[in-house]
Amino acid sequence: MKLHFMKDNQKNQFLPKNVSDSIPFSSKDLPVIYNKFSVKPDSMVAELMKQTLSLCEHKESTPSQKYKIELVKKLGATKSVVCHSQNYAYVVFYCHISVGIRSYAVSLEGEDGTKVKSVAVCHTDTSKWDPKHLAFQLLKITPGGTVPVCHFLPEDHVLWVPYN
């Protein structure tokens, strides 16, 4: 299986709490935010920031190269919190509860000897997913089927699992 582990070249850093608290973080304050970070309102960066704020303000209706595998270790229970890095002027994560998943720590070694440690997540309940989701097309399966949908988390995502 060919896997591509892409490096995120975004150099944003975490801000101290007192600094982040002083910066508006709301769609209604976009003009002020754009001005503070010298972002042109009609630019692609502005659109990405707008999408990030929209996602953060959205209320969820439900909690929702060739490598050889060297080691797989199951992590935690079937419930976890996953945080996805978003495009913004500083580090912003969109976090949500995921239920009906299995997560694994995976060690891989590439053909060239490169070693990678990653986290794999398998979604065991896809019944509420959009039937047009790319995973269903690639795997030739349907929502709610018996086949889990598994993927690696990108390096800038965070998975919180219960510690036993």
Rank of each mutant, 00 (worst) to 15 (best):
K2M: 09
L3K: 09
H4S: 15
D8F: 14
N9L: 12
Q10G: 07
K11S: 11
N12L: 13
Q13D: 08
Q13T: 15
F14Q: 10
P16G: 04
P16M: 10
K17L: 11
N18E: 15
N18S: 11
S20V: 13
D21M: 08
I23G: 04
P24A: 05
S26L: 10
D29I: 01
D29F: 05
L30V: 02
V32F: 03
F37A: 02
F37W: 04
K40A: 09
S43R: 00
M44W: 06
M44P: 00
M44Y: 08
V45D: 03
A46M: 01
A46L: 02
L48D: 06
L48F: 11
Q51M: 06
T52Y: 03
L53T: 07
L53G: 06
C56G: 05
E57F: 10
H58I: 04
K59L: 06
E60H: 07
E60A: 10
T62N: 10
S64H: 10
S64P: 03
K66I: 14
K66Q: 12
Y67K: 09
E70M: 13
L71V: 10
K73E: 09
K74H: 08
L75T: 05
L75P: 07
A77V: 12
K79P: 02
S80P: 00
V81Q: 05
V81C: 03
C83V: 02
C83P: 02
H84Y: 14
H84V: 09
N87E: 11
Y90R: 09
V91I: 15
V92Q: 14
F93G: 05
F93C: 05
I97H: 13
I97E: 15
S98L: 08
V99N: 14
V99E: 15
G100K: 07
S103P: 14
Y104T: 07
V106W: 08
G110K: 14
G110F: 08
E111H: 02
E111A: 08
E111S: 06
G113H: 04
G113E: 04
T114F: 07
K115E: 07
V116Y: 00
S118L: 10
A120H: 01
A120I: 04
V121Y: 01
V121I: 15
H123C: 06
H123E: 09
T124D: 15
T124V: 09
D125E: 12
W129F: 15
W129A: 12
D130K: 12
D130C: 12
D130A: 12
P131K: 14
K132A: 04
F136S: 01
F136R: 02
L139K: 06
L139Q: 05
I141C: 00
P143Y: 09
G145I: 09
T146C: 02
V147S: 02
V147D: 04
P148R: 07
V149K: 03
C150K: 12
F152Y: 11
L153A: 08
P154Y: 04
E155C: 03
D156K: 15
L159G: 00
L159I: 01
Y163A: 07
